[in-house]
């Protein structure tokens, strides 16, 4: 199981045909204190690039897009009471949703750990 990233700072962790999705540690740092996460509805069919979730910090709302297409199987209900999990454990307990991947080839377009590190360094 490896983690891949998008240029918009979502991460995807793949287990079989299920993708767990969250935002990167870089993204949570940029956002600051997360106070609310709107997660998708279970059963929703998402295309790649569709809005998957909305993350609200004290100051602003940011959209999170689906890195790959698929059906939403599960959402992280812990976030409702403890949205700060996104700050505390962006790559772990702060996940947003699990989706059933409909086209595994879309994963090939994502960055691996090293490529993402280089990418965010390039953002300054």
């Amino acid at each position: 199981m490896s983690i891949k990233y998008t240029e918009d700072h979502e991460w995807v962790s793949v287990d079989g045909d299920v993708a767990t999705i969250g935002i990167s540690d870089y993204a949570q740092q940029q956002l600051g204190d997360v106070v609310f996460v709107e997660v998708p509805e279970i059963g929703a069919d998402l295309n790649k690039g569709d809005e998957l979730a909305v993350v609200e910090s004290v100051k602003a709302a940011s959209e999170v897009y689906a890195p790959v297409a698929g059906e939403v199987l599960e959402v992280n209900e812990e976030l409702e009471g403890t949205p700060s999990l996104v700050n505390d454990e962006a790559l772990g307990q702060g996940w947003f949703a699990k989706i059933k991947i409909s086209d595994a080839s879309e994963l090939d377009q994502l960055m691996d750990d090293n490529a993402y590190k280089a990418y965010i360094e390039g953002l300054g």
Binding site: A27, Q30, G32, A60, E63
Partner: peptide
């Protein structure tokens, strides 16, 4: 991920105001 308004690519908090 991006700022809601304008759907520009997420740019940290640079455009927060």
């Amino acid at each position: 991920m991006c700022k809601r308004r304008g759907r520009t690519r997420f740019a940290g908090m640079r455009d927060i105001m």
